[in-house]
Simulated assay, not measured.
Amino acid sequence: MNVSTRAVLTAAAAAAVAGAAVLGEATLVAVAGALVLALSVGWPVLLDLPTRLGSSVVIALGGAGGVIAVTATQGQPYLRELPVVVALAVLLSFVNELARQDGRHRLVESVTGTVAGVLVVTAAAGWVATGRAPVGDALVISGAVALALGAGVSAVPLGGWLAALVTTAAAMLGGGAVGAVMPVLDTLAGALLGLAVGILVAALHVLFDALPALERRTAGVAALLLPVSVSGIVVYVVGRVLVG
């Protein structure tokens, strides 16, 4: 899966998040759950972890637990139970290593990769938390549109700092445009939200797009969904700062 294809599919996934926000909380929870499932399968392949099945199970349980915890939490802050879920998933990652029967080679790499996967998938719960917050639908749509534009522009082969700047600018433009038409937001808030998402997309593009594992389909899916999942927590935090 080449860079252009991944960029287009990332933009499509971001558009799906925006559409889910319009359709309601249940749809947004379902989309977050789908992100968790896809990432839990592809993440161990992307990082070439030694025990892919065990790591996938731990990551899936952590991500699903995060989405369920955020959905069930009554009253703000909606992410207050998420650290407990992450802590339990980290403990589970050690149990996974204790259960290995292969000599536990590459132990540190396996643990750190699995824990990193847990953090990535639990971030998807941020979309659910954002959607439940005041003016949450507007924040989700603004962040998702910024992500879609930033991801789409990242496919342009500019290279270096120019590519990062263009990606961030496109995300700011998308977020600002949505903020301008949303009665509960404004252009500045939308643009700042787009700035945060754009920096994230540009950074992940640099970090992961050169990995040889991306030749595998499941790894490519994980890479293209990575910005969508991580943006969930970014949009929630920035949205809380900007609009409360």
Rank of each mutant, 00 (worst) to 15 (best):
G42Y: 01
V115H: 08
P227E: 02
V145Q: 00
D102F: 02
L61N: 13
L173S: 05
A116D: 14
L88R: 11
L242T: 12
G159F: 03
L173E: 04
G103R: 04
A222E: 01
H105Q: 12
T130D: 08
V22M: 09
L107G: 10
A69S: 08
V156D: 01
D137L: 03
V156F: 06
R100F: 06
L147I: 00
E97C: 02
A72G: 05
I233V: 14
V29R: 11
R100G: 06
A133E: 04
E25V: 05
S229A: 10
D48T: 13
T122L: 14
I59R: 02
A210Y: 05
T27I: 07
W43R: 09
A60M: 13
T10L: 01
L92V: 01
P44E: 04
V241F: 11
L107E: 09
L92T: 03
G176A: 15
A14E: 01
G54R: 02
Q74N: 09
A20C: 15
A15T: 11
M1H: 11
T73E: 12
A72V: 12
L37H: 07
T51M: 13
A20T: 08
L185V: 14
A129N: 00
G65Y: 14
G244L: 09
W43E: 10
R100W: 13
L226Y: 04
A189F: 09
P227V: 00
T114C: 09
L225R: 08
L98V: 15
L204I: 15
A89H: 15
T187V: 14
V17D: 05
A124T: 15
V178G: 03
P212N: 14
L98N: 13
M182D: 05
A12P: 07
A69R: 13
L119N: 04
S56Q: 12
A18H: 09
A171K: 00
A163D: 10
L224E: 05
L39D: 00
A21R: 02
T5D: 11
L226I: 00
V184G: 15
A219W: 01
G103E: 00
V115N: 09
V22Y: 13
A170Y: 01
G232F: 15
S56G: 13
A169M: 08
T130S: 13
A177W: 10
L23F: 07
Y236C: 01
A69G: 15
A164D: 09
L185P: 12
F208S: 06
R80T: 12
V115M: 15
L47W: 07
L165R: 14
L211C: 06
V115D: 09
M182A: 15
L224W: 09
V178I: 07
V221T: 15
E97N: 05
A213K: 08
V153G: 00
L225P: 01
V238R: 00
G175A: 06
T168I: 00
L158S: 03
E97W: 14
R217H: 06
S56P: 14
L226A: 02
I141N: 08
V84I: 09
A138W: 04
A16E: 04
T122M: 13
G160I: 03
T27F: 05
D186L: 06
L91E: 05
M182C: 14
A223R: 15
H205Q: 05
G194F: 11
A34C: 10
P44A: 01
A38V: 09
V29D: 06
P183C: 11
A196V: 05
R216E: 07
V235G: 10
D102P: 00
V111L: 12
E25K: 01
V235L: 10
A14I: 09
V31E: 11
M1D: 10
L185T: 11
G24P: 03
